[in-house]
């Protein structure tokens, strides 16, 4: 990739990691070698900088939900400077970000035109306009941060208005129009397949698997007839099956289990999941 500059590479192959949470902190304090890397979000480092003392001794991957890559409104210079600061501190091999947006121009009569945030990533309209804008903004981000940008597929719970492309077509178009690599969230993908009614295995074949560098996996909950992303539940077996399929098809540098929502999930259950993934990718 064109943008790599002296970034740390992950030593294990693939590197198996956990997203940072209270349980991750406990687990690595007790058994540091249980994971090869820890994924930490920029937003958490900003909100709780004290977390840094638990993290700095470990290989880290910086994840982000602040760039609003698919949006029209842009993040502030202050945000960009801060992300760059944490990229340097963490020495992350890349920056992972969602194909989504959270910044937007307010329609509120009282605040019309002001840049506001939804506080959470939204799936954008999947069409040519969004593809072009997102690809351009990925390139700008890569240039600004001097690192590779990995873009992550969002889960679809509803069809974004103004969409003319399927999600695989949309992702393919963005990746072919930019230098970004792919952060495939298999749980998001499975959720989307359930909610949109397609075969995940067939749709995986339509994705540029060769561009995958990192995979995310987490839990799924079913409620109100919809599949939902759940970072407090174990990875379903069928998502592990998809993981095995992808790992057979292509080389993946990192796999991150995202259990970063406070939950009843015990530390031992998380450790078992890490081991199960490790066993699976060794096969």
């Amino acid at each position: 990739m064109a943008h790599s500059k002296n970034r740390k590479t992950l030593t294990s192959n693939p590197s198996i990691g956990l997203s940072y949470s209270e349980s991750t902190r406990r687990i690595i304090a007790k058994t540091p070698s249980i994971v090869d890397h820890i994924e930490v979000s920029y937003e958490l480092l900003e909100a709780r900088p004290e977390s840094w003392e638990h993290l700095q001794a470990h290989p880290l991957i910086l994840h982000c939900a602040s760039l609003s890559l698919a949006g029209i409104a842009r993040p502030s210079e202050e945000t960009l400077v801060s992300i760059r600061h944490w990229l340097n501190e963490t020495n992350s091999p890349w920056l992972g970000e969602h194909i989504g947006y959270h910044l937007f121009s307010s329609l509120s009569a009282q605040n019309k035109g002001a840049i506001e945030t939804t506080g959470y990533t939204l799936a954008p309209p999947m069409n040519a306009t969004t593809v072009e804008r997102t690809a351009n903004q990925i390139e700008e981000a890569a240039k600004y941060f001097g690192c590779d940008i990995l873009v992550e597929n969002p889960p679809l719970y509803y069809t974004p208005p103004d969409s003319t492309l399927t999600q695989p077509e949309f992702i393919n178009s963005i990746l072919s129009s930019s230098n970004a690599s792919f952060l495939l969230d298999l749980t998001h993908f499975k959720i989307t397949s359930i909610n949109c009614g397609f075969c995940p295995l067939h749709a995986l074949g339509q994705l540029p698997l060769e561009l995958i560098r990192e995979i995310h996996i987490s839990g799924i909950r079913q409620e109100q007839g919809i599949a939902w992303d759940d970072h407090s539940a174990v990875v379903p077996h069928d998502v592990l099956d998809l993981l095995a399929y992808v790992c057979n098809k292509t080389h993946v540098e990192a796999i991150t289990l995202e259990y970063n929502l406070t939950s009843e999930l015990s530390d031992s259950a998380i450790i078992e999941q890490v081991q199960a993934v490790r066993d699976l990718v060794r096969q």
């Binding site: 947006y101 329609l107 509120s108 939804t118 939204l122 208005p161």
Partner: peptide, 22 residues
């Protein structure tokens, strides 16, 4: 219109009272 669509979805998510009138 594209911009308006994205903002309108975001407003629906935030669901502020003044947007409900629109």
């Amino acid at each position: 219109e594209h911009s308006l669509t994205m903002s309108a979805v975001a407003e629906l998510v935030l669901r502020r009272p003044e947007f409900d009138t629109q």
